[in-house]
Amino acid sequence: MNAALNIPYRMGAALLLIADQTGGIAIMAGQVVRRLVPPRIDRYELFRNAYRMGVQSVPIIAATAGFTGALMVIQGAPIVERYNARNIIGWSAMFTTFRELGPLLIALMFNGRVGANNTAELGTMVVTEQIDGLRALAIDPITYLVVPRYLSIAIMMTALVIIGDFVAILGAMGMAWGILDVWPRQFYYSAMPMLQTWDFSVGVIKGFFYGNMIALTSCYFGLSTRGGAPGVGRSVNASVVAAASGVFIVDYLSTFILH
C-alpha cells in the first residue's frame, strides 16, 4: 500500500476496532441488565466471586491506599514546612485522596489483579470449550458467569474504595506524624472541619463506575477470546489497556459531573 495512504488506513482500522469493542461492551451491558430485570442471579457464584475478587483483594488494596495517603503527605510536606501550615496537611492529603487518587489508584490496581484474572479465566474457558460446554448443558453463560462477576466486581470495587479511604487516612496520619511531627489527633482535627461528606461520596461513586467499567470490559474481552492460548494473552492485554483507558475516561467525565 502507498505509504501516504498507510497512516489513514491504520487510523481508520484502529477507529473501527475501538467502535467494534465499544459496541461489544455496550451489548454485553444490555445483556447483563436484561438478566437483572427481574434478577436471575446464581447466588453461589456471586458469593464465590465476591470473596475471591473482593475479600482476597483487601491486602493489596489496603497497601495501595496506605501508600497513597502517605504519598500525599510526602508531596505536601515541603510546602507545609515552608509556610508552617500544619493545620491543613490533613485536609489537603485527604481531599485529594478521597476525591481522586484513592479511587483511581485502587481501580488501576484492582484492574490489574481482578480484571486481568477475570479475562484470563473467561478466555481460557472459551478456548477449552467450557463456554460451549455450558451452552450444551442448556446453561446461559451470561447468567451463570457474567452476571455474578459483574455484580461482584462493581460491588466489591465500591466496598474496596471505602476500605481504602480509611486505610489511606491511617497511612497519611502515620506519615504526617513521622516527617512533620503532626500528631494523629491534630491531623484528624485539621482535616475534619473542612472535609465534607460529599468529598468522600464522590470517590465512592467513582469507585462504583470504575467497577462497572472493569467488570464489563474484562468480561467482554474474556468471552471474545479467539485463537487458543496466545489468544488468551492477547485478550488479557487488550482488556487491561481498555479498562484502564475506560477508567480514565470515566474519571474525566465523572469529575466534571460530580465537581
Partner: peptide, 22 residues
C-alpha cells in the same frame, strides 16, 4: 432462539474434544 435451544439441549449429552471440564 437461544432460549428455545436450551430446551432442546436438555436432550443432548456432549463430550468435547478439549474435555470442557469446569
Amino acid at each position: 432462539r437461544e432460549r428455545e435451544m436450551m430446551d432442546l439441549r436438555r436432550g443432548i449429552g456432549m463430550l468435547f474434544q478439549n474435555y470442557a471440564l469446569f
